[in-house]
Computed example of a mutant assay.
Amino acid sequence: MKKNSYLLLIGISLIWGSQFFLVNLVIGSIPPVTLAAAKALIGAATLALLHVFSGKRTQHSETKPPWRSFLWIGLLEAVVPFILIGWGQQTVSSSMASILMGTIPIFTILFVKLFVPGETISGAQWLSAIIGMVGIGILFVPDLGSSLHGGSMAGDLALLGASVSFAGSLILIKRLPPIAPILAMRNVLFAASVILVPLALLLEDPFHVVLTRQQILAVVILGSFHAGIVYMLYNVLIQRAGATFASFNNYLVPPIGIILGVSVLGDELTWNAAVGLVVILLSLAVGGIQKQKRP
């Protein structure tokens, strides 16, 4: 179980860490809210098709599907963070944004302690979260000077708000009633699209977006893999290992992006990237101590 949880964590981080390549292909041609709405719709459709072709019949329950929970998860996981991140990064550098988003595991631990009485938080988990944040800081230490002087308090608070929102969604996913992950996240993405599509129509002009074939393929991949499939895997990880452990993917995404940049794009591997990666891996090892002690 422990090994499978780590493999899931790495797989999820690989998928999310690779999305920056695809986003760079389309971000200049499609407005951000429209892109988010497209990802949510394509992700929901992907999971719906996977469920149909899997040949598994939905088990009907006497209770109605928790659509209120799906709506709240969609709001906290996709809608609110997207708006806050998009607004905050107008005045905050990407390096500082990554550091602020690294607070998600700490907020998750706080929320677990407050709202999930059956799940205990060990000292190893607290230490793991703190070490992970230190690793993220080391990754971006060359940019910290300009980030601290060039950002704004409002932008920082917006990104911290996005972290709080993400952490809240993890707790809600953990508290979902027993339901197949593929169906749960299909419903969450559908609920998110119900919010995002009207926002895109209100704030942007999605009907006049013109994309090349390569960009269309990139959007489809972003929706099917980086929204649909990865959210299904994320749900599985949360149910298996808990919200706190699942939140550590936020530490792995930046170094994976750096590794892909070095191996695929030929970027230079700097000392701080290498040291930061080692520290982040150490944080995951420390977090695993608590898991080994569980009966």
Rank of each mutant, 00 (worst) to 15 (best):
P178S: 12
I216G: 13
A37F: 09
L252E: 04
V220E: 01
I83N: 07
A200R: 06
L252A: 04
F53I: 13
I10M: 06
K2L: 13
G223E: 02
V219A: 05
L201W: 15
V253A: 01
I256E: 02
P198T: 03
I138M: 08
N249P: 05
L8Y: 14
N249E: 11
L183P: 03
A285P: 10
L22M: 10
L237P: 07
A241I: 02
L160C: 09
L159F: 00
S169I: 04
A184Q: 12
F53K: 12
R68S: 14
I171R: 05
D156N: 13
G145L: 04
Q90G: 09
I15C: 07
S69L: 15
L148N: 02
V197Y: 01
F190W: 10
S263A: 11
Q239W: 05
L25P: 09
G28C: 03
I104Y: 02
F166R: 08
A162Y: 03
I104W: 09
V164W: 15
L233C: 05
V264N: 04
G74N: 05
A45T: 09
I83S: 09
K113C: 09
L41E: 02
P81C: 02
W126N: 08
P32I: 14
S263W: 15
I30E: 00
G150K: 09
R240L: 06
R175S: 13
L41P: 10
H226E: 08
L157C: 10
V194W: 03
A191K: 13
L144V: 12
G132S: 05
I138Y: 02
L127R: 11
A48C: 06
V262S: 01
A78N: 15
L25H: 09
G17I: 00
P142Q: 00
G102F: 05
L237Q: 02
G137M: 15
V92S: 01
T63S: 13
G266S: 06
G261P: 01
I259E: 05
T46K: 09
N235W: 12
N250L: 08
S147L: 01
G288H: 06
L203D: 12
V33G: 03
S5Y: 06
V275T: 14
A78C: 09
I195E: 10
G118D: 15
L170G: 11
I171Y: 03
S163K: 01
L8Q: 08
T63P: 00
L84H: 14
H208D: 08
G132H: 10
V210H: 12
V26G: 05
F140E: 11
F140H: 12
A78I: 12
K174Q: 13
G242K: 06
G242S: 05
I289C: 15
I15M: 12
G11N: 00
D143L: 06
M133H: 11
A274Y: 10
Q214H: 13
A154T: 15
V134W: 06
S29W: 02
L172F: 06
A40I: 05
A78M: 12
F225Q: 10
G261E: 02
R240F: 13
V116G: 06
H149K: 12
L172Y: 03
P178H: 14
L9V: 11
